[in-house]
């Protein structure tokens, strides 16, 4: 069954059809949530909430990219949660723990050796920490663009802002992250350091 048929069946209330879409997109949705939120628990919550919300409002989906529809919902959920945490900070991000990437063989590329794998994990930690220093709107724009690979137009639709705003937010996010990586240069493996 193709995606359009699954969406149509889900709009009729068929949870099984919607779950086919969940299986197809859950990796991307969770990855986006993880890069925005910075910890597995919050990412899981955001992902689950996003799929529930997507199913409940799927009758309002009027075509277009279903991936953009999902990413829009999850990024909005993450944005709300980040804003809530900013208003009422209760738990620091460090308390949530991190992914035990050493225990995830799926993260190892088949062609890289142990040393390259370790260096990539170190780089990922530093970059993720840099992403988490960004304001929520810039963070979401950066992740949608550079992690998820969405175009400016898709980002504008997902975040309900103009193309100019997307361009501006993305440029600021990249500039701040560049400055952060420069300041944390000694934490990066040599081959990942900025000049």
């Amino acid at each position: 069954m193709d995606e359009a048929a699954l969406i149509s069946a889900a709009q009729q209330g068929q949870v099984d059809a919607f779950n086919e879409l969940v299986l197809a997109y859950q990796q991307q949705v969770y990855n986006l949530a993880y890069r925005i939120m910075g910890d597995p628990a919050s990412a899981s919550d955001a992902t689950q909430e996003a799929f529930i919300s997507a199913f409940q409002s799927i009758s309002r989906f009027r075509g277009g990219s279903f991936k953009s529809y999902l990413l829009r919902i999850v990024s909005n959920g993450c944005y709300d949660e980040l804003r809530r945490r900013k208003r009422r900070p209760t738990t620091s991000f460090e308390d949530f723990g991190e992914v035990d990437e050493d225990a995830n063989p799926a993260m190892i590329n088949g062609h890289e050796g142990p040393e390259e794998y370790t260096e990539r994990q170190e780089m990922a930690h530093v970059v993720q920490a840099g992403i988490e220093t960004l304001p929520p709107d810039q963070r979401i724009t950066l992740v949608l663009s550079d992690v998820q690979g969405l175009s400016y137009q898709e980002i504008a639709e997902a975040t309900d802002v103009s193309l100019g705003t997307v361009k501006s937010r993305l440029a600021r996010a990249r500039g701040k992250l560049r400055d952060y990586l420069r300041s944390q240069g000694e934490l990066l493996p040599a081959r990942y350091r900025l000049e």
Binding site: A43, F51, M107, M123, Q128, L142, V147
Partner: peptide, 13 residues
């Protein structure tokens, strides 16, 4: 940023 590894999902959603 584009080279960040994919994080495996902890469960099916």
């Amino acid at each position: 940023v584009r080279d960040l590894p994919q994080v495996p999902i902890p469960c099916n959603f």
